[in-house]
Design a protein around this nucleic acid. Structure first.
Lengths: 186, 186
DNA sequence: AAATTGTTTTTACAAATGTTAAAAAAACTT
DNA sequence: AAGTTTTTTTAACATTTGTAAAAACAATTT
């Protein structure tokens, strides 16, 4: 069984029946390094799971890139603004490394959720996690200065440090690359 | 019929049957200016509606108050971190003005949601709105400097300017009160 | 190896924000 | 009204972050 389904089961148990139906509805896609998974102004309501690789969810503001979130292997992600409002997204998602994703399209999420109570519970939990993720991201930016944001990132994601460029890390921390370089110099 | 229910109907239509059952389950509370609606470390899973008044949702970090959000009359709010994780909240909620709230306790939300599909839809929409609110709050902090955050607040919430102290506004914008005073001086 | 391109660091200066303390203004109490 | 308390502004200085340009370093191509 694929790790999308394993991960689902870990979050909230699903019957054999649901698993096999889910397996049938899941699609897979490989995105080469540098290519887009989801474009700006695209209405994207799929639930993605990173089987392998690394993606960034980002946009531009005043010609500077700002990264909302990184998603590495074994993570769910979705284009939250589009998903919740059923509108085109302001953001884009691109592969930092060549990435394999499994994904479930919205109509199939709805289908499974209305058919199976267990799936609806899973769905709700995944949405809660996404919301709490946004909440934590907000708090991090709101209450800490750049230096402590950097220090925290280092402790929490040591393995990502080898996989992310400093430019991307600066765009995630919300500071200029020069400023990040200065912080590191200490 | 109370404005809690009117507001629900505006967001997503409810049958007469649901409305009267909801009416029956709703509770009301008056919180005097300065008093707490929800304490830190309290597990609070009610859905609140501000009938009249104004509240702030906030916490302290390094002895400085930080305000996550204001909620004025005709707004839903919930203690999102507690609600989604079923754990004690890091935050507290207090009345800036004497406030009347209607609220629906979690077990009753669940009850209505599992009994009525229309209510489940409403519930989902309210949660989506809360999540999008957090998203917008994050973006505001992430991409704009303090001056433009202040300018935007002014345009978007002119009537609140008369009701909120500068200290509270600074705590909302994430800057010191001195810094806010400087911004205003321009 | 040399040339090219991309990434990271350094330098120098400007702008924004924090901190502390004091002054001024406004709101509240007696 | 006078006194008291709270809120807001101002001043002076320190720290953080931004910007632009150059230098150093690393990776890639020819």
């Amino acid at each position: 069984m694929g790790s999308f389904i394993n991960r689902c089961n870990f979050i909230s148990p699903l019957s054999e029946q649901i698993c096999s139906e889910l397996q049938f509805l899941l699609k897979t896609k490989v995105i080469k390094k540098g290519e887009l998974i989801s474009k700006q102004n695209q209405t994207n309501m799929s639930l993605y799971y990173v089987e392998s690789g690394l993606v960034k969810h980002f946009y531009y503001r005043n010609n500077r890139p700002l990264i909302l979130q990184f998603f590495k292997e074994n993570s769910f992600f979705l284009i939250l603004d589009s998903f919740l409002s059923n509108k085109p997204s302001e953001f884009m998602t691109t592969a930092i490394e060549t990435t394999r994703v499994s994904y479930l399209e919205y109509q199939n999420i709805e289908k499974l959720a209305s058919k199976y109570h267990q799936f609806e519970t899973l769905y709700r939990k995944i949405m809660s996690r996404a919301t709490l993720g946004t909440y934590n991201r907000f708090k991090d930016i709101f209450e800490h200065d750049a230096t402590s944001r950097y220090d925290k990132f280092l402790v929490k994601n040591p393995e990502l440090m080898q996989r992310i460029s400093l430019g991307d890390l600066a765009a995630y921390l919300g500071i200029s690359q020069v400023s990040l370089s200065r912080i590191r110099a200490k």
